[in-house]
């Protein structure tokens, strides 16, 4: 069988391209940090600082690659084989899923690092349009008729789950722990939602760039960042009387670091988050630092409000998920009406 000359060349070219694609692997240390949406700016800064720190400490050159997306989507990718050395996600529940469904790390991962493995915290606040035309001051103002709330979708977004739980926790506090009244409140809250984005970042975009809704409810760090990015955009921060202490956890993925031989650098990366430099970078990127010293330094930057934790009010992520976000849970029932 004789091939015409043009076709021969074409096949050769295709084979060559395939070959070069397969051979493109580099030698220096590469770390992959799979993270959630609003940490883009934080890790851009942090990765540079860490690379410098690691080089002076060990002489090795580290390049940290980033992948961002909705927290649940990112966890799913890791379960399906995305080779993350470290994961820095929005919820402990998502890392639990990696431990459970992917069996890539031990179930007690959260006790491996200080502060529930959450080196920085955040909370849920409101962003309103200039002059606060709807007069929003606290959670109770959000359920009023005619207020458009932009949270993200609690089924897919970490921020949205924290938001949902914050609203629920607020209502519980207002009604002396009456579950039914809390549910009523949260149902009203979600009736005021015109658009559900999958992720926190999408919600911010909807609110700011598309001009939809009156209040953006989400990460404090995201709200600060939005204010910084839109200096003349005309938005105001509104801090509610009470909110949830959101603890975005970090950890290394045992199976991956073992296979890739990156255990030390991955651990070093996470430890550096707890160092003074790491804490300051977090604070500069609007995440509340854990270190008391750094917190004191940035004290005037973060508004003061009463914060409750998920363990106090909901008994931890597993229980909260089962009761609220699983199929047929409270959130589904609210949506169905």
């Amino acid at each position: 069988m004789q091939l015409p000359p043009h076709l021969n060349k074409l096949l050769l070219l295709a084979a060559l391209t395939l070959f070069t694609a397969g051979a493109a692997t580099a030698k220096d240390i590469k770390l992959l940090n799979v993270s959630y949406d609003p940490t883009r700016e934080l890790y851009q800064d942090f990765n540079v600082a860490f690379a410098k720190h690691w080089q002076t400490k060990t002489g090795d050159k580290v390049t940290v690659q980033q992948s961002h997306g909705g927290s649940g989507k990112q966890a799913r990718s890791v379960i399906d084989g995305l080779e993350a050395d470290v994961v820095t996600l929005a919820l402990a529940y998502d890392i639990d899923a990696i431990a459970e469904k992917g069996r890539l790390l031990p179930k007690d991962w959260q006790s491996r690092l200080p502060h529930n493995s959450a080196p920085y915290t955040s909370t849920i606040v409101f962003l309103v349009r200039k002059g606060n035309p709807k007069g929003i001051k606290d959670w109770s103002d959000l359920v009023k008729r005619g207020v458009g709330i932009i949270p993200a979708n609690p089924k897919t977004s970490g921020a949205a789950r924290w938001t949902y739980l914050a609203a629920w926790g607020y209502a519980l506090k207002q009604n002396n722990g009456d579950e039914a009244r809390a549910r009523e409140f949260v149902a009203k809250f979600y009736q005021n939602v015109p658009v559900f984005d999958t992720g926190a970042r999408g919600a911010t975009t909807t609110f700011i760039q598309r001009g939809i809704g009156d209040v953006l409810v989400g990460w404090e760090n995201e709200a600060f960042l939005a204010l910084k990015e839109q200096p003349k955009g005309g938005y105001e921060l509104v801090v509610p009387s009470v909110s949830i202490l959101a603890e975005p956890p970090v950890t290394f993925v045992d199976k991956v670091v073992k296979r890739r031989g990156t255990t030390d650098v991955a651990k070093g990366y996470l430890d550096y988050l707890y160092s003074d430099e790491g804490q300051e970078i977090a604070a500069r990127n609007y995440y509340r630092p854990r270190s008391a010293a750094v917190a004191a330094k940035f004290a005037d930057k973060f508004p003061k409000l009463q914060l409750f934790t998920i363990d106090e009010v909901f008994g931890g992520w597993q229980q909260a998920t089962k009761a609220h976000f699983a199929d047929g849970g409270h959130f589904d029932q609210i949506q169905r009406r």
Binding site: R76, I79, N153, K155, V195, F196, D197, T198, D327
Partner: peptide
């Protein structure tokens, strides 16, 4: 806008199911 029950298309629901770790769904 991806509002469940209102503006959510079937392929998007698949993505959401995946993100909820509901593989079989």
């Amino acid at each position: 806008g991806n509002l469940p029950m209102k503006t959510e298309i079937a392929p998007y629901l698949i993505v959401i199911r995946l993100e909820e770790y509901d593989y079989t769904g």
